[in-house]
Write a protein that binds this DNA or RNA. Structure first.
Length: 328
DNA sequence: AAGGTGAACAACCGCATCGTG
DNA sequence: CCACGATGCGGTTGTTCACCT
């Protein structure tokens, strides 16, 4: 795989577009030169973000703010993870696309270090093609695969059944989602089965165990992300594992609960992604006691008495933006 | 070696949304 | 309420490289 950043940047000096803005200044377009990158990077690191048009001007760049923003977000941001997508990331993208569709920014928000543009390109170039190849060999009658589950199934057949389970839960109402009592039966419902390497049932509460590869690759570095390896998240103790629905209710009573450090604060409100409108915050009646150790999470839920009410698709979709999975 | 073609990626464009005066 | 600018997002295009013939 070539490194476009190395090749395309150099090419910019040769083929350079210029457009004029209303103030008659010449604004560059096209690929960014290393010098421009350095200017923007230096300015962003020293002065931080602000109005992008100001940034473009103050950094001495003959670019529009929009272009600077895009360059920063898609390429210069220090927390970006470069390189090929791991198989786990591929699965995650496919799965999230299953649920979210072409909401690349939301998908990207759940893949630390990846940009929406990157994911979109990856989807359009690689995954779509893989799908076509698979669909051509498997189901000659299906000329078009408009259903996301077809796409997922085309790429990773195991998703078909998993998506169906999710779809049943999303499509049907009244309550497609099993009550917590029923949740004691393993794998009754798994909205993110690919994350569910191991499903532990612990006193009636299911936990998802993170694939360590994902946890390590995406969050176990020194970039301030939590190391989620071996992390377990209570099904409803946090909206990490399930995009909670508007009408869902959760009750915990008398818990001695070592919460996911960034998932639930002491009031049972979501603090994972700074979303005050968290899907849980308005519905959760939990009263969690959070122990001092916040570095790990979800290891010590005891006596949980969780209850889930009704679930609905609309609520799910509304809540997805705040669903904090891998959202840092 | 030269040309064609597709893959991969960067960047642009247009539109929607949001905040502010 | 409206206008306007800034920002965000998704679709699309443009560019380069690698591979194949």
């Amino acid at each position: 795989m070539r490194k476009p950043s190395e090749t395309m940047g150099m090419a910019m000096g040769i083929k350079e577009k210029v457009s004029s803005n209303p103030h008659n200044n010449k604004l560059r377009k096209g690929l960014w030169s290393p010098e421009e990158d350095e200017k923007l990077m230096r300015y962003m690191l020293t002065s931080g973000q602000g109005c992008w048009s100001d940034i473009a001007r103050n950094a001495g760049l003959q670019r529009c703010g929009k272009s600077c923003r895009l360059r920063w977000i898609n390429y210069l941001r220090p927390d970006l993870k470069r390189g090929a997508f791991s198989p786990q990331e591929e699965e995650l993208i496919v799965h999230l696309h299953n649920i979210l569709g072409n909401r690349w920014s939301q998908i990207a928000a759940r893949l630390p270090g990846r940009t929406d543009n990157e994911i979109k390109n990856f989807w359009n170039s690689t995954l779509k093609k893989r799908l076509k190849m698979n669909s051509a060999t498997s189901s000659p009658n299906d000329s078009e695969l408009s259903d996301p589950r077809d796409i997922a199934a085309g790429i990773m057949p195991s998703f078909q059944a998993q998506y169906d389970v999710l779809a049943r839960c999303m499509d049907s109402s009244p309550p497609p989602f099993p009550s917590m009592d029923n949740m004691s039966a393993p794998n009754q419902f798994d909205p993110f089965p690919i994350l569910n390497n191991r499903c532990d049932t612990w006193e009636g509460v299911e936990f998802f165990t993170f694939p360590s590869s994902i946890a390590q690759a995406s969050m176990g570095d020194n970039s301030g992300y939590m190391n989620l390896e071996h992390a377990k998240v209570g099904l409803l103790g946090s909206d990490f594992s399930v995009p909670p629905l508007a009408s869902s209710t959760t009750t915990t009573e008398g818990n001695n609960y070592r919460s996911m450090g960034c998932g639930m604060d002491g009031k049972g409100e979501n603090s994972f992604s700074n979303n005050n409108d968290s899907c849980l915050s308005n519905t959760t009646t939990a009263s969690f006691k959070v122990e001092d150790d916040m570095s790990g999470f979800g290891n010590n839920l005891q006596g949980a008495n969780l209850r889930i009410g009704e679930w609905d698709l609309e609520g799910l979709m509304d809540d997805l933006p705040s669903f904090p999975f891998l959202d840092f």
